[in-house]
């Protein structure tokens, strides 16, 4: 039982981690908590569903996974579409609000945007929960201790690959360096000869693409609902702040901690309160270690 709970927690945590990486990047580079980030997750999940609906499952699943090439293609399209949406929102709304003297105006705007995106999805796709595939998957038994679905293992593996890839990207590419630099001192990036608009653009693209991916993986391992993002918002923020804003590795560990805490909470509190666990963790971290568990520098991407 305990092992099953731990395994479930790690798997939920890996999806939270994926979303939190995007959030922590945009939060440190763009310097505001984007409450509409979670809606990008929902948007990605539904675009993939729509693309899958259009193309149909023209190939069978790649056993033992529940999905095949069509969903992978649909995910790529969803990531691109979500990036376009994020850039569009930035151009139409955030860019103008960021220039305002009252710093929180853009946060306020992000709430308005999140309502618009979520309700548009509800209007177009309806409120009922759906799935990418209704095919049954055979669970893998691990040493008689716990059972996992192949899709869940896939999700975990993909998260690890992305974290490693992002680490190398931030460490070794010029764009990655520029993103870390922008988080520290936006003006100096231009003086160094790097186009700071390009940094902003790619931060949105990467954050949105990761959000879309998190959405598809959530849809794959749980279900697709218009409230996916809304329900993930608090876990994502808790993970990002726990890991130290801007700290990619921290966000991953934060995501895993939030996921584990959520699933272990059944031993302590009735399951109805599970959604409040990230909030309690958040309060705890704000009281005890407000710069995050891993002592991130102010706003620095690492």
């Amino acid at each position: 039982m305990l092992f099953q709970v731990l395994a479930d927690g790690i798997l939920t945590g890996s999806i939270i981690a994926l979303g939190a990486i995007g959030l922590t990047l945009t939060m440190s580079v763009l310097r505001f908590p984007n409450f509409a980030h979670a809606e990008l997750i929902t948007f990605g999940a539904y675009i993939a569903l729509a693309v899958l609906g259009l193309t149909g499952a023209f190939m069978g699943p790649l056993a033992p996974l529940s999905f095949g090439l069509p969903l992978i293609l649909a995910t790529v399209v969803a990531m691109a579409a979500t990036a376009v949406l994020a850039l569009l929102i930035d151009r139409l709304v955030y860019r103008k609000l960021r220039a305002r003297s009252k710093k929180m105006t853009v946060v306020f705007g992000s709430f308005g945007v999140s309502l618009l995106v979520r309700m548009s999805i509800l209007l177009v796709f309806g409120g009922a929960a759906t799935y990418y595939s209704t095919a049954l998957q055979r669970a893998i038994r691990v040493g008689g201790l716990f059972r996992v679905m192949p899709d869940q293992v896939f999700t975990l593996g993909l998260t690890i690959i992305i974290v490693v890839g992002l680490h190398l990207f931030l460490k070794f590419t010029r764009l990655g360096l520029a993103m870390r630099a922008y988080a520290e001192n936006p003006q100096l990036v231009g003086i160094y000869g790097y186009d700071s608009e390009r940094v902003l653009r790619w931060t949105w693209i990467i954050g949105a693409a990761l959000a879309a991916l998190a959405g598809v993986l959530y849809g794959l391992t749980v279900q697709i609902r218009p409230e996916i993002g809304f329900h993930l918002l608090l876990p994502l923020f808790a993970a990002a702040i726990m890991g130290g804003v801007g700290n990619v590795h921290g966000a991953v560990l934060g995501g895993l901690i939030v996921g584990l805490a959520e699933s272990l909470s059944i031993y302590l509190i009735p399951p109805g309160y599970k959604m409040a666990v990230p909030f309690l963790l958040l309060l705890l971290i704000l009281y005890l270690r407000p710069t995050g568990l891993f002592g991130s520098a102010k706003g620095a991407v690492r």
Binding site: P33, L234, F237, G272, M275, L283, Y287
Partner: peptide, 28 residues
């Protein structure tokens, strides 16, 4: 007390969190 010592944006996140938690308590 938790959120106001730090960055303005943490208050936004923490108050969002209490809204969800209060709703859960009301329901459960």
């Amino acid at each position: 007390l938790a959120a106001l010592r730090l960055r303005d944006d943490y208050l936004a996140i923490a108050t969002f969190g209490i809204a969800i938690s209060v709703q859960l308590v009301a329901l459960n």
